[in-house]
C-alpha cells in the first residue's frame, strides 16, 4: 500500500507512517496501540495520504449504517406478542414524520385510546410504556431481559402494575398521555435512545410521578445508557424498582425528587 514518494514531487507526499518491519517502527506501533486501546475515541487509525485508511473509513461507515438501521427499522411483532404488550400507536404516520414532528409522537391515535380503555387495567400504581423511540434495536436488545426483572421486582414489593403497552412511533412524553388516560400513579417509559456509533442498542428509562399531558421534562427522572456495555438490562430493572418505590413514597419525580437530578438527556 505504501509506495515510494513520487520522485518528481518537491514535497514528500503523505503515506502511511508505520512500517512494521523496522524495530523503531515496531516500538512506535506498540505505543500507538496503547493509545488506541485505552481510548474510546477512534485514535491511532492512521492515514492514506491526507485521507483515512480504507479500513478506518469502512469501519466508520459500517457503524453509521448500524445506527441508521436502528432508527429506521421497527420493533418486530413477534417481540411485542412474546412480551404480552398491548400494541398502540401515536398519531404519527411513518418514520419520516416521526423524525420531523415530535409533537405528533406524544399523543395516541383514536383507535389506541379506545384500546387502552378496553384492554388495560385502570388506575395502577405503575404503568409501563415501551416505545421504539429512536432505536428499535435498543428495545429488541434490552426489553426482553429488563421487563421481567422490573415486573418481578415490583411484585416483590407489592406494587401494583398495570397492563404493559407498546407504543409505536412514541416519544418519551407519550407516557404522559397513557398515564393520564389510565390514571396511573406513576409511569415508566422504556425507549430507544438516539443511536451513537459505538452502540445502537442503548435504552433509556424515563419515570414520572402523576403523569399529565404537557408536564415538564424536569419533572421526569431518567436512567440512561442501558445496554450490555453500559448499565446491563437486568441491573437496570433492579435500579428502576428502587427508584419507583422512592417515587411512590415521596409522591414526586425528577427535580422534585432529587435536587441534584438536573441533568437530563433529552431525545
Amino acid at each position: 500500500m505504501a509506495s515510494d514518494s513520487n520522485p518528481d514531487s518537491d514535497t514528500e507526499p503523505l503515506e502511511p507512517t508505520a512500517d512494521p518491519d523496522s524495530d523503531a517502527d515496531q516500538a512506535n506501533e506498540e505505543a500507538l496501540r496503547r493509545i488506541a486501546d485505552r481510548n474510546p475515541t477512534r485514535l491511532g487509525v492512521g492515514r492514506s495520504g491526507p485521507r483515512p485508511t480504507t479500513d478506518a473509513l469502512l469501519e466508520f461507515r459500517a457503524d453509521h449504517g448500524v445506527a441508521r438501521d436502528a432508527v429506521h427499522s421497527r420493533v418486530s411483532d413477534g417481540l411485542i406478542d412474546d412480551l404480552g404488550l398491548v400494541e398502540l400507536r401515536t398519531t404519527v404516520a411513518d418514520t419520516d414524520q416521526y423524525l420531523a414532528r415530535p409533537d405528533l409522537g406524544r399523543e395516541l391515535d383514536a383507535d389506541s385510546l379506545e384500546r387502552l380503555e378496553r384492554e388495560c387495567e385502570p388506575a395502577p400504581e405503575v404503568q409501563i410504556v415501551v416505545s421504539d423511540g429512536l432505536s428499535s434495536s435498543a428495545v429488541e436488545a434490552n426489553v426482553p431481559q429488563l421487563l421481567p426483572a422490573l415486573l418481578d421486582g415490583l411484585e416483590g414489593r407489592d406494587i401494583s402494575v398495570g397492563t404493559p403497552v407498546f407504543v409505536e412511533f412514541g416519544r418519551v412524553d407519550v407516557m404522559d398521555a397513557v398515564g393520564e388516560e389510565l390514571e396511573a400513579d406513576c409511569c415508566v417509559s422504556l425507549i430507544g435512545e438516539r443511536p451513537g456509533l459505538r452502540t445502537a442498542e442503548s435504552l433509556s428509562a424515563y419515570l414520572v410521578y402523576g403523569p399529565k399531558r404537557g408536564s415538564a421534562t424536569a419533572k421526569k427522572s431518567v436512567v440512561s445508557n442501558i445496554h450490555d456495555g453500559g448499565l446491563p438490562p437486568v441491573e437496570a430493572g433492579a435500579e428502576l424498582v428502587d427508584l419507583i418505590a422512592e417515587m411512590l413514597a415521596a409522591e414526586a419525580s425528577g427535580v422534585d425528587l432529587r435536587e441534584d437530578d438536573r441533568e437530563f438527556r433529552t431525545e
Binding site: 514518494s5 514535497t11 514528500e12 503523505l14 507512517t17 500507538l32 491526507p50
Partner: peptide, 12 residues
C-alpha cells in the same frame, strides 16, 4: 512546503 509531512498522523 505547504503540506503536512510524512510524520503527520502519529500521536506518539
Amino acid at each position: 512546503e505547504g503540506r503536512l509531512t510524512e510524520r503527520a498522523g502519529d500521536p506518539t
